[in-house]
């Protein structure tokens, strides 16, 4: 469990924070309106996860267990402030679109959950890799969801205002469904996507157990 490579790959599929652990729903829905927002939010959360996991792992023998949650929150909030200020300076349009969700990374349950479940029990190396894996898993989930929502809602994919890129038009504006970009579309897309992941996992498990019974691996 604590080997760094295992810690890294764990977050990407088997314990994907969005699709398997079902954590951090609000930013997932709010930041998956466009692929560029998804990547921005994902990378911001990855940075916070790696930073807070590292610091908490280093301090794990110093922090008294009674007040560990407030201590974790201060560490996390510090990294969130760094991300907030950096994003405001270098990617102002992304910062404006994500709005209140940038400071709200501090209450993203993925980060506190990893601090509590992993970083407080493992060494700094494994903790950084766990943060990186979880962050990439979160980013990939955001990319999947936004790659569904952005074209359906606007007909365009990969638009990034900060880089002056208008995106690639897949079909004319008049066929676009703006409601997919509303919270409505976010809830329904996420619900169906988790359903699909459940279906795939169940199928795989079925296949696996049948394969094991037949004595043939996979």
């Amino acid at each position: 469990m604590s080997s760094p490579l295992q810690a890294f790959t764990n977050g990407i599929y088997k314990e994907n924070p969005t699709f398997r652990l079902l954590l951090g729903m609000c930013p997932t829905i709010a930041a998956s309106m466009a692929v560029s927002n998804g990547i921005g939010m994902g990378l911001a959360a990855t940075f916070v996860l790696m930073g807070s996991n590292l610091i908490i792992s280093l301090l794990r023998s110093v922090i008294p267990s009674e007040i560990r949650i407030p201590c974790y929150i201060v560490v996390i909030a510090t990294f969130v402030t760094i991300v907030d200020l950096v994003m405001n300076a270098f990617l102002p349009q992304l910062h404006a679109v994500l709005g209140v969700f940038v400071p709200l990374i501090v209450v993203n349950c993925i980060i506190l959950a990893r601090a509590e479940a992993f970083a407080s029990k493992n060494g700094p190396g494994a903790s950084i890799m766990d943060g990186l894996g979880m962050g990439i898993g979160f980013t990939l989930a955001l990319i999947v969801l936004s790659a569904i929502r952005e074209p359906l809602a606007t007909g365009v994919v990969l638009a990034a205002a900060d880089f002056g890129f208008d995106g690639i038009r897949l079909f004319p504006q008049r066929y676009a469904m703006a409601i997919v970009n509303q919270p409505v579309g976010g809830f329904i897309t996420l619900g169906l996507a988790i359903g699909a992941v459940n279906l795939i996992t169940a199928k795989k498990k079925n296949k696996g157990s049948r394969g094991a019974q037949g004595g043939a691996g996979k």
Partner: peptide, 8 residues
Amino acid sequence: PIALVTTG
């Protein structure tokens, strides 16, 4: 999943 769709 069904809870999210209902919320939608």
